[in-house]
Simulated scan of single mutants.
Amino acid sequence: MTAPVRVLVCDDQPLIRTGFATIIDAQPDLEVVGECGDGQAAVDLARRLRPDMVVMDVRMPVLDGIAATRLLAGAGVADPVKVLVVTTFNLDEYVYEALRAGASGFLLKDAPPAQLLQGIRTVAGGAALLAPEVTRRLVGRYAARIRPAADPADVPLTARELQVLRLIAEGMSNQEIATALVLSQETVKTYVSRILTKLDLRDRVQAVVYAYRNDLVL
């Protein structure tokens, strides 16, 4: 049997933290290995427990969630941990800062439990999670700060890879891309992997940013 995804929950509100932990631990494929109430504790626990991912709040004492995410998943971290930021605040600045710090996903706390669980599984599986409407608003405003623009002629993608990248930027899942292009999901996964490798990107969120920043979205 596949080992469950090991999750660390970090939120300064005990009721919310306990609620998240209860929902997550009730799943056969997920396991809560620790809980904490501030960003520094999250960093310390993550380094000691080595969870597969961290569910991270933003506004917390001692060290906020953005700074903690940067220490756990930011550029230059030798052994990064996947982070899913879950916050009450639907502010573009928080989304942008979380992604720049290294988070692989962003959800609001009022999301239904099923969406939280799917988000955890998505991020733990190596994909990125960001609602398409949030992506469009965010990238349109902040992409210039995230990655320097490249000459479109220098983008090292084949025509099909570019097509897949554009669909990723529209918020499509692998299944949706496979349906749209009449391909298998495995073929789409291969294209996504090639795109990330060729463009030196960490995940789908960075791919979306790259596509918008370089005016590749039709």
Rank of each mutant, 00 (worst) to 15 (best):
V7D: 05
V7R: 04
V9S: 01
D11T: 00
D12W: 00
D12Q: 00
T18P: 00
A21W: 01
T22M: 04
A26D: 13
L30E: 04
L30F: 03
L30A: 04
E31F: 12
V32A: 01
G34K: 01
G34V: 03
E35F: 01
C36I: 02
G37I: 02
D44E: 15
P51F: 09
P51H: 09
P51T: 08
M53G: 10
V58P: 08
V58I: 15
M60T: 10
V62K: 13
V62D: 09
V62G: 06
V62T: 14
V77D: 12
A78F: 09
V83Y: 06
N90L: 12
L91P: 03
D92Y: 08
Y94P: 06
V95N: 06
E97H: 12
Q115E: 14
L116F: 00
L117D: 03
L117A: 06
Q118Y: 06
I120T: 00
A124G: 02
G125E: 02
G126N: 01
A127P: 01
V134R: 13
T135S: 15
T135E: 12
G140F: 06
R141F: 10
D151K: 03
P156R: 03
L162N: 10
V164P: 03
L165I: 05
L167S: 08
L167V: 03
A178P: 11
T179Y: 08
L181D: 07
S184M: 06
E186H: 13
T187Y: 07
V188A: 07
Y191N: 14
Y191I: 09
V192F: 04
S193T: 15
S193D: 14
I195C: 10
I195K: 07
K198E: 09
R204M: 12
A207M: 09
V208D: 14
D215R: 15
D215E: 15
L216F: 08
V217N: 08
V217A: 10
